[in-house]
Structure formats: structure tokens, C-alpha cells
Nucleic acid binder design. Structure first.
Length: 713
DNA sequence: AAAAAAT
């Protein structure tokens, strides 16, 4: 297992290529039926393919629709009564193979013991088997009815879509934190999305929802607030194409809003968007928006620098939507613009921030990211999406399975580009951007413009205009910084003291395990804290994040997953229990506080052996402070609002109760447990126990504790 | 070195 890592890397690469190859040869076989035209079948071809199921296939008619290469197959799906016409389902038996797959992965270890070359094959063997057996059959029928695949080479194996199975409960799990703001404190403002609900609700594809949907309904009243965003999103997803005019005046305020003196109007943003923004009291563009919007509107490539929260989302969102709305129509499977973001959280935030705007201007958007069910993403793509907001992994996945074709992308946007340009990420980005036709517009936004993104700029941007506002250090300047040199034995207590304060605190640690550990230690000391890291499954991540945003949990212990993506207002203190890796990370982490002009404090702990590194780091980050000695109870800690915690230990159970959706899961087991695999490493066992216990024994200890912690200023 | 991103 020594060089497992490097092997993995190699493996992944190989596998991708290999997979493509498999797929391609697959397609070739299918294509044989199309007289082997290499340019592939055009409209006529598909038309003439005339499979029986073809004619029957209609929007909303799930029977003959099909999908291919569906990754997560759950047994209940196969039971789905609706598949009547779906005889070929059986073929999938070969694919059901959760077990196969697992076997495949296990094999990996053996392999690593044996040798590298053969490995690869074994590594994904599960997958390969699958594609060899089941998948092909699926796909065969799948060629029906994709009409205008006039685009370049890719169109070949577009799956025929998949049937709209909507029983994916976990489906929108992801969106709990929706209420989260985009740029400003728009939480309230976009919250009034409720307005839209009634009108869209009727448009939902009730016809497609089986009985499962009904059962969902039963859960609903019980977890209303968690449902809302989900429902909202669902409503939007499922808006039938023909009902598109439904984007009507409900979006417009009753009282006319004056556009006079509105900064966005002055920048050339269309009235409908300006009005929508004004409804949320967004009338004055941020500097980065003023700087970049005109150029972006003019169609130029833009290189924008500004830290997260400086308004980047609107800076690229407004011109993109404007230009998209100006002409053209999304074709099935071919988005017209793509926003690439490094984390799922960020993807959701971008999506949420743009959602009302997308609607008002009559376009469609979709969030495409891992950890969320494929189905809504596939069907949205099939229906046609103007703006795709994506994390790289899932997008590539969708591209490889033919669900997303970037050959008609007019605008490509890279958010947090410095992060995306890091090792390992870059490859994915290039793979994606290579599919985007040259000559389109490219917008690249980043907090810093020097971390190796030159390659990307060079390769994908044409004569870009560079706009740098808010150069990172300026925001740093608005915070109080403290670097505390402490003894190892004091670390735990000092951490708790700093975190034990009124208001929200984000604690950064280096590793996932560390996040769980520190959060646990804080709770042991009576400080209510939850951990957030990439090892949690998506629903856990979302639950933790929304609990933090809602103030149910005041302390978030996170890895760097939260260093960039998280937009939460009112984070008064950022505590770095482990020093950041470099000054960039310092800036990113620090940027979680002092948002939107608030004040903020950054406390960084360093152990004696880290002193010199720490000082250098501070200097590099542009922070003008000295590392100072500190011990528990020191004034510095009190100055930051901390105090010695006195609360009783908080059990995992109590925490779980707090971060769980209210009485969620009687019928909703799938909500959190489904993804199974990635629980807390250390507290995983307690997780479930606590969860259930919480439901039964409803002793409301957690809240008291929060209050105690909160008032213990 | 860690984390993130697909399963």
C-alpha cells in the first residue's frame, strides 16, 4: 500500500481513457446500425431509427424512456411498478451489481500488492464489467429520438434520457442550506421565493410521480422548513417546457420599482434583472461588478480578482444571463453556458444566488454536482438548460455518459479559479474546457491570480481584460488578528475558550479526522460544535452547514472545505487550531469573517515549533502582528469574546438532534443514511444511535446549552 | 501534506 496514492492517480487517468474507449467502441457498434457514418446520425438518422419505443417516447411518458449507465441503482427502483414497458430492465441485472462493484474495489487492494499494470483493469473492473454487460443493451435502445444533434462529434451516444423517477428522496437533500445568501444578506429577500410556489406547484409533474411521491407528502408537514427549498427547486426543475411563459409577472413587484439611479441599470443590465435585484434591495453594484460587467456584457474575456463574497457571483451572473437571454435557445443536452466551481457548497450558493434572476429572464439553469442524485440532473439536461452550474467531477461524468454536451457552450465561467488550477483539479478543468468551442466567451474569477492559473488563462482566454478589486489584503486589513503561541497541553482548553463565545465561530483544522476530534473535544467541554469536512456525505454536510447558518450550532469545526466556499454572515471569529498551509489559505480562511463590512477576529494557534513558520506566514499574508505567548484565560482570549466554558458535556446525540431536520425521518430514512458510506469516522456509530435516541427522548438539552454558550460572553 | 472533485 506504499504507493497506493500514486497508483490511484494513474489508475484514475487510465480508467477514464479506458472508459472512454469502451464507450466509444460501444457506440461504434451501435452506430453500425446507422450505416457507419462517422459524422454520426443527424436528425434524419435518428428519425429513421424508428424504434418501436421511439414514437411512444414523449415528454412525461416514462415508460419507454430510458437511461443508460445509471450509476446508483437501488433495489426499489427496480421494483418500480411503472416500468412496465421496460422489459430490458433485466439486462441490468448485470449492472445491479452493487456487489460486483464492491468486489471490484476490494480487488484494488490485492492489486496494489501485486502490480500496477494489471491493476488498472482490476481497479475499475467492476465498472468495466458492467459496461461490458448490462450497459450496452441499455444503450442500444437509447438512441431514439434525440432530435437536433447537429452539433459536432459528440452526439453519438446520447442516452435517450431516463425515466423521471422521482422517488429520490435524498434528492434535494442537498439544498437545505438554500436559505444561504448569495452576495449580500439576501437571505430574507430571496426567501420570499414563496411567492412563486403556488404558481409553479401546479406544474409539477405529478403524472410522473408514483406512489412514492405520496408518501413523501406525508412527511412534509413535519419538516416544512427543510422541505421548502427542495420543493421550490423541484418545482422549478419540473416546469414543463411548454409552460415556460409561466415566468410571468409574478416576478415583478406590484409597485413599480424605480430604476432611476440604479447602478445596475447604468451598467447595461436589462430592466427585468435590475428590478428583480431591486426587490431584494440590491441596487448598488459592488466594485468588482462595476469593473467587470461592462466588459463581460460586451462579450470580452474577463479575468476578475476578488475574494469570495465580493460580489463575483453577480459579476459573472448578470452579464451571462443578459447575453444568454439576448438570443438563442438551449437544446437538449447542450447547455449554453457553464459555471465551474470547486465545491458543491459553492455550486449551490451560486445556483441559489442566480435562481431568481434566471427565472425572471426566462432561462433555465441547473446545478450539477456530486453527491446528488443523477436523475434530476439528467432530466433537466435533457429538457434543455441554458446555464449549467457544475462541479468538475460530476460534469465530466455526465459528459462521458453523453448527457451533457458542451459543444454549444457560448460562455464558460471559472469561479475560484485559483483553486481549480491546483494539482489534480486542473486536469479535470482542462478536460472540460477542451470541450467548449473556442471563440466563446470565458470569464475567470479568482481570489488570487497567481497560483498557477496562468496556464489556464493562457490556454483558454483570449485577450482578457483583467479587473482586480478588493485584492485580498484589503479585507485582511479590516480584521483583528492574533497569533497565539501556546503550549501543547493548553491547546484543547484555549480552543474551547476562544470558541466559547456569543455568535458564530468557524474553527479550522488541517484534517478531517482533526475536525471530528476537535468538535468532539469542544462538546466535551460544553461548547456546541459540529464538524464539516469532505468525509461527510452530502446530506450530512448540508445539515451541518444549515444548522450553522441558522444558528442552531454556533461553532463549526471545518477543514479547508469551508475555507473558500462558505458564505455565512456574522461569523465573528475564525479560529485556526492548526496553522494554515500557506498565506493564501490564511487569507481564505480569514475571509470567512468580516464579511459584508462587519468586524471580525482571526485567532491562530501555533505550537512552539511552529513559531517561525507562523510568523513568516503572517508576514506573507500581509498581517502585521507578532506571534505572542498565551495561556488559557489570557486577556487576548477575552478580547476576542471568548471565555472559559462551563457547560456540561454535550453528547453526540444532542448534537445530532440539533442538526437533524425536525422529526425528519420516520419515512425518510433515506434522507441521511442512504449514502451510507461516509459517516463520521469517529462518531459515526454514535451518529445513528444519537439520531434515533433524539427522536424518542425529546429532552431539549441542546438548545439550553446553546443559549448558555451564547450568553456566556 | 491535505483537501476537494464521480461512483
Amino acid at each position: 500500500m506504499p504507493n497506493k496514492k500514486s497508483m490511484d492517480g494513474k489508475k484514475a487517468r487510465w480508467t477514464r481513457a479506458q472508459k472512454l474507449e469502451v464507450k466509444r467502441s460501444d457506440v461504434r457498434k451501435q452506430r453500425g446500425e446507422f450505416a457507419g457514418s462517422d459524422r454520426g446520425p443527424r436528425k434524419e438518422h435518428s428519425e429513421s431509427a424508428g424504434r418501436p419505443e421511439r414514437g411512444a417516447r414523449r415528454e412525461g411518458d416514462r415508460g419507454p424512456r430510458r437511461f443508460e449507465d445509471r450509476p446508483q441503482r437501488r433495489s426499489d427502483e427496480r421494483r418500480d411498478g411503472d416500468n412496465g414497458g421496460y422489459g430490458r430492465r433485466d439486462d441490468r441485472g448485470g449492472y445491479q451489481g452493487r456487489d460486483d462493484r464492491r468486489g471490484g474495489y476490494q480487488g484494488r487492494d490485492d492489486r496494489s500488492a501485486s502490480g500496477q499494470r494489471d491493476d488498472r483493469r482490476g481497479g475499475y473492473q467492476g465498472r468495466d464489467d458492467r459496461s461490458a454487460s448490462g450497459q450496452r443493451d441499455d444503450r442500444r435502445g437509447g438512441y431514439q429520438g434525440r432530435d437536433d444533434r447537429s452539433g459536432p462529434s459528440q452526439r453519438d451516444d446520447r442516452r435517450g434520457g431516463y425515466q423521471g423517477r422521482d422517488d429520490r428522496r435524498g434528492g434535494y437533500q442537498g439544498r437545505d442550506d438554500r436559505s444561504g445568501p448569495g452576495q449580500r444578506d439576501d437571505r430574507k429577500s430571496y426567501g420570499d421565493r414563496d411567492n412563486r410556489r403556488p404558481s409553479y406547484r401546479d406544474n409539477r409533474r405529478d403524472d410522473r410521480q408514483g406512489s412514492v411521491r405520496d408518501s413523501r407528502h406525508e412527511d412534509r408537514p413535519q419538516r416544512r422548513e427543510f422541505d421548502r427549498p427542495r420543493r421550490d427547486d423541484r418545482a422549478v426543475e419540473s416546469r414543463p417546457v411548454e409552460a415556460r411563459p409561466a415566468v410571468k409577472c409574478e416576478e415583478h413587484p406590484v409597485e413599480p420599482i424605480s430604476l432611476e439611479g440604479n447602478g445596475f441599470a447604468a451598467l447595461g443590465i436589462p430592466d427585468s434583472l435590475v428590478e428583480r435585484l431591486a426587490r431584494d434591495s440590491i441596487t448598488a453594484p459592488f466594485p468588482i461588478q462595476v469593473a467587470t460587467i461592462p466588459d463581460a456584457l460586451a462579450g470580452r474575456d474577463v479575468l476578475g480578482r476578488g475574494r469570495t463574497g465580493s460580489g463575483k457571483t453577480l459579476a459573472f451572473g448578470l452579464p451571462t444571463l443578459t447575453r444568454l437571454a439576448a438570443g438563442g435557445k438551449a437544446r437538449s443536452g447542450q447547455p449554453r453556458a457553464v459555471v465551474l466551481v470547486p465545491t458543491r457548497e459553492l455550486a449551490m450558493q451560486v445556483s441559489d444566488a442566480l435562481q431568481p434572476l434566471v427565472h425572471v429572464i426566462g432561462l433555465r439553469h441547473k446545478l450539477v454536482a456530486g453527491g446528488m442524485p443523477y436523475e434530476p440532473q439528467l432530466s433537466a439536461l435533457e429538457r434543455g438548460v441554458d446555464l449549467l452550474i457544475a462541479t468538475p467531477g460530476r460534469l465530466i461524468d455526465l459528459m462521458e455518459r453523453g448527457a451533457a454536451d458542451l459543444s454549444r457552450v457560448e460562455i464558460a465561467i471559472l469561479d475560484e479559479a485559483d483553486h481549480m488550477a491546483e494539482m489534480g483539479f486542473l486536469e479535470a478543468i482542462e478536460q472540460i474546457l477542451d470541450q467548449v468551442p473556442a471563440g466563446g466567451q470565458r470569464l475567470l474569477f479568482s481570489a488570487t491570480l497567481d497560483r498557477g492559473i496562468d496556464t489556464v488563462v493562457e490556454r483558454y482566454l483570449t485577450d482578457p481584460v483583467e479587473h482586480a478589486t478588493d485584492d485580498g489584503t484589503s479585507s485582511i486589513a479590516g480584521m483583528d488578528h492574533h497569533a497565539l503561541l501556546i503550549e501543547p497541553r493548553h491547546k484543547k482548553l484555549v480552543t474551547a475558550e476562544v470558541a466559547n463565545r456569543a455568535g458564530r465561530t468557524v474553527v479550522f483544522v488541517r484534517t478531517k479526522l482533526g475536525a471530528d476530534r476537535v468538535a468532539g473535544e469542544l462538546r466535551e467541554q460544553g461548547v456546541l460544535a459540529a464538524s464539516l469536512h469532505g468525509g461527510l456525505n452530502q446530506s450530512q454536510r448540508n445539515r451541518v452547514l444549515s444548522a450553522f447558518k441558522e444558528g442552531k450550532v454556533p461553532v463549526l469545526v471545518a477543514t479547508d472545505v469551508a475555507a473558500r466556499g462558505i458564505h455565512v454572515d456574522d461569523v465573528g471569529v475564525v479560529l485556526q487550531v492548526d496553522p494554515p498551509a500557506d498565506h493564501k489559505d490564511y487569507q481564505h480562511r480569514a475571509g470567512r469573517t468580516a464579511r459584508a463590512g462587519e468586524k471580525g477576529t482571526v485567532v491562530t494557534l501555533a505550537l512552539p515549533h511552529q513559531r517561525r513558520t507562523m510568523q513568516r506566514l503572517l508576514d506573507a499574508a500581509g498581517v502585521d502582528v507578532e506571534v505572542q505567548n498565551a495561556r488559557p484565560g489570557d486577556d487576548v482570549i477575552r478580547a476576542a469574546g471568548g471565555s472559559t466554558p462551563e457547560g456540561a458535556p454535550i453528547s453526540e446525540a444532542e448534537l445530532q438532534r440539533l442538526i437533524s431536520p425536525p422529526r425528519s425521518s420516520r419515512g425518510g430514512r433515506s434522507y441521511g443514511d442512504r449514502a451510507g458510506r461516509g459517516g463520521h469516522s469517529r462518531y459515526g456509530g454514535g451518529d445513528r444511535g444519537g439520531y434515533r435516541g433524539g427522536r424518542d427522548g425529546n429532552r431539549g438539552g441542546g438548545r439550553d446549552r446553546f443559549q448558555r454558550g451564547g450568553s456566556g460572553r
